[in-house]
Design a protein around this nucleic acid. Structure first.
Lengths: 176, 176
DNA sequence: CCTTGACATGTAAAACTCGACATGTCAATT
DNA sequence: AATTGACATGTCGAGTTTTACATGTCAAGG
């Protein structure tokens, strides 16, 4: 149900094609809400049928730009302002980190190091995105989410480093 | 697909009934992976049919305690060690925070303040859980996840406070 | 004894999500 | 002229998740 609000928000901020929306999810929204094109296109169609978004332009290769209508913006506003937030997070990485503590040190290290590599790759990606966003006058929605990511990820990274250090010190084979 | 690994991990750490598992998801795992009892019971049955968990005791009110079998632990280990992590996060709160930047300051404040209240409630809950966990010798898996939460949440809180301050200063009606 | 509330387990239909398949456009290189 | 790769949109079946329904136990208090 949240997908539709994500799409309403993005198309309210700037008209986008389904393809562009999929790109945005992939590059900027993936740590908040993941969606693939096979979900995005049908949902755009539904939103369009309900008059919450409309086609505002057609480009090359049969592409269509969608923008949220007044009704769509209203629906989005109501959801944001009036719905109680629910916490039903699904984050495989967090789950992995939790479960990793059940492994023996050697395996644990393997998993923690891979998670660290992933996180660091993501952090670099975010930094690139931050620079990009800073140069062109992109909507501030991204800027503040990037900022949140840049604040949170180093903390997670610190935790991972600590966990790795602990696993290393607890490694029975470390000295053999 | 992650649910089964969560269940394998929890039942590997200590035998649990479906009810207890649902409680754990609700209280400790909800910011990593959410699942409700209507998913947990059928999945336990499947795991049991596949020999990955087994009934290790029966208690009052028809309750059954499950524990991961050797095969179950092996399946869990393989998943953790050999599967590349994927990032397909679904977190409604993060999405809300992102979308909130599209609202006008007054509405934005409403939403941000509610998110802040939720976060602070969650932080208190975590603190309670931390004390509880510290007193009895609960498996360290929880302790380290609680630690992660206690590191990350204050950062998110700081971001929220900044966003609120910014929305307040940008409020056109603030001085009227 | 009766009621309430926490404990405890399940099912089924509807909704949502994923991965694979399918099709086609357009620009740049070879 | 043909190939390649990014652009672009879609569908379908299988699998996952949610919401609502459904049933029953047990302890404590009135």
């Amino acid at each position: 149900m949240s997908l539709r609000y994500a799409l309403l928000g993005l198309t309210a901020a700037f008209p986008s094609t389904g393809y562009e929306l999929a790109r945005i999810f992939d590059r900027s929204l993936d740590y908040a809400w993941h969606a693939s094109h096979s979900q995005i296109y049908p949902e755009l169609k539904r939103l369009s049928d309900e008059g919450l978004v409309e086609v505002v332009g057609e480009g090359a290769r049969n592409s269509k730009s969608f923008a949220a209508t007044a009704a769509g913006r209203q629906v989005l506003r109501e959801w944001l302002v009036e719905t109680e937030p629910v916490r039903k997070v699904r984050d495989e990485s967090s789950l992995r980190l939790f479960l990793t503590s059940l492994l023996e040190p050697a395996d644990r290290l393997t998993v923690l190091r891979r998670e660290l590599a992933h996180l660091e790759a993501h952090m670099e990606e975010l930094d690139r995105l931050a620079k990009e966003t800073a140069s062109r006058a992109t909507p501030s929605a991204f800027a503040s989410m990037i900022d949140l990511g840049q604040r949170v990820m180093p903390v997670t990274r610190g935790w991972l480093l600590d966990a790795i250090a602990q696993a290393e010190s607890g490694l029975p084979d470390a000295l053999t």
